[in-house]
């Protein structure tokens, strides 16, 4: 804790960053919330423990936060993967964000550029956690009709509040596909077809881009496990194309890349 606070204090004092994005006390004791520290004397609010799971990288593309100046950001693995994917998509320039890698022992490592973030992440486990694997396996084990019924049931409560989109660091489009109305590609309505089209479109738009942070499901007020949709597609992309989002700052977007030696021959 002290290491993080001292680091934040130093960075703000010497002006190397204008804002430290981290976690501070939330509404209730078991909750943390995003804080945007501008002055050295504010660093007492910072902490880091297992209450800290909101993906703060979502704020790196928020105009009001960008306007604050150069940020330092507490770097959980999910946040670091998000930064690399944002980098791969030209949303952050190298050196524009100072990530503060934190490990279980409270050590803080300054990661000033994408290479340092890549190196920091390299030894950490890349796959989904056993619990996440198990959730996916459970659905994969269902028959097609069981799977369909499962998702129609899970999605039946969806209100189209877009908390999932708002919490996702990779949903930074100034104008979301659902906001296009000439034509209205995706229905606005929260009827079953509209809900399904929204979530399927979102999952497809994230295929190969999702960094498996699970923020979408955590953000959903109804706890719908929509992260399983994007995580499943992440696995598919990894399996079929050997690509995984958030490992490197070099862009390799599966849906936007064609290689002559691709397995699919329909495009030839």
């Amino acid at each position: 804790m002290d290491a993080l606070r001292n680091k934040a204090r130093d960075l703000l004092s010497d002006g190397s960053v204008q804002v430290v994005i981290g976690y501070g006390p939330g509404s209730v004791p078991d909750q943390a919330r995003a804080v945007f520290l501008r002055r050295p004397e504010q660093v007492g609010a910072l902490f880091f423990d297992d209450r800290c799971h909101q993906n703060l990288a979502v704020y790196l593309t928020k105009p009001e936060v960008k306007a604050l100046g150069k940020p330092a950001i507490v770097g959980t693995p999910a946040i670091l993967r998000s930064i690399l994917q944002l980098a791969a998509e030209n949303q952050i320039a190298d050196g524009q964000v100072l990530a503060l890698g934190v490990d279980g022992d409270g050590r803080v490592t300054e990661l000033p550029d994408f290479k340092s973030i890549e190196d920091f992440l390299a030894p950490l486990p890349a796959d989904l956690s056993p619990q996440e694997q198990e959730q996916l396996a459970r659905i994969e084990a269902m028959s097609r009709s069981e799977r369909w019924n499962y998702w129609i049931d899970q999605l039946s409560c969806c209100l189209r509040c877009y908390a999932c989109r708002a919490a996702c660091p990779l949903c930074y489009c100034g104008r979301c596909a659902v906001e296009a109305n000439q034509p209205q590609w995706i229905p606005v309505a929260p009827h079953p077809r509209g809900v399904l089209e929204w979530h399927l479109a979102r999952a497809m738009h994230l295929a190969g881009r999702c960094v498996n942070c699970g923020s979408c499901a955590k953000a959903c007020p109804l706890g719908i496990p929509i992260h399983l949709l994007t995580q499943m597609l992440s696995q598919e992309v990894a399996k079929r194309f050997g690509l995984q989002a958030g490992r490197s700052a070099k862009r390799e977007y599966v849906l936007g890349t064609f290689k002559p030696d691709d397995a699919e021959d329909f495009i030839r």
Binding site: A34, Y162, A167, P221
Partner: peptide
């Protein structure tokens, strides 16, 4: 600053009545 601009608060609120027509 930390608000993400979703509609969760309005949709959960029993006193919010704003709607879209399509």
């Amino acid at each position: 600053m930390r608000c993400l601009g979703c509609g969760a608060c309005a949709f959960l609120c029993p006193a919010c009545a704003c709607f879209d027509i399509q």
